[in-house]
Amino acid sequence: NKFNKEMRNAYWEILLLPNLNEQQKRAFIRSLYDDPSQSANLLAEAKKLNDAQA
């Protein structure tokens, strides 16, 4: 399933972002589970926040 693969990839990438705190990571991951079809958008948002907090 395409969404499962995308979601899994986004999950691990979000977990490994160094500048997000645990609460932020949990919020993004919760959103991933709520709507896996938004994986790419959520990952992009997480990366943007990660860069902003660098």
Rank of each mutant, 00 (worst) to 15 (best):
N1H: 04
N1Y: 00
K2Y: 04
K2I: 12
K2T: 15
F3E: 07
F3V: 03
K5A: 07
R8Q: 13
N9G: 04
N9E: 13
N9T: 10
W12G: 09
W12D: 12
E13G: 09
E13I: 15
E13D: 07
I14V: 07
I14A: 01
I14Y: 00
I14R: 00
L15K: 15
L15Y: 03
L16P: 02
L17T: 02
P18F: 04
P18M: 08
P18R: 12
N19Y: 10
N19R: 09
N19E: 10
L20I: 06
L20W: 00
L20K: 00
L20H: 00
N21L: 05
N21M: 14
N21K: 07
E22Q: 12
Q23T: 13
Q24H: 07
Q24Y: 04
Q24T: 07
Q24L: 07
Q24G: 01
K25E: 01
K25G: 01
K25V: 06
R26V: 14
R26D: 07
A27P: 03
A27Y: 09
A27W: 10
A27M: 11
I29N: 01
I29K: 03
I29Q: 03
R30P: 00
S31N: 12
S31E: 12
S31L: 09
L32G: 01
L32K: 00
L32M: 07
L32H: 01
Y33N: 05
Y33I: 05
D34G: 12
D34I: 15
D35K: 04
D35A: 06
D35H: 03
D35V: 10
D35G: 06
D35T: 08
S37L: 08
S37N: 10
Q38E: 11
S39F: 14
A40T: 07
A40F: 10
A40M: 11
A40L: 13
A40H: 14
N41G: 11
L42K: 10
L42F: 10
L42G: 02
L43T: 06
L43I: 05
L43A: 11
A44K: 12
A44V: 06
A44S: 12
A44F: 14
E45G: 10
E45Q: 10
E45D: 13
E45A: 13
A46R: 00
A46W: 00
K48G: 13
K48W: 15
L49N: 06
N50Q: 05
N50G: 05
N50M: 02
N50R: 02
N50K: 01
N50P: 01
D51N: 14
D51M: 15
D51G: 15
A52G: 12
A52K: 11
A52N: 09
A52L: 11
A52E: 09
Q53T: 11
Q53S: 11
A54T: 12
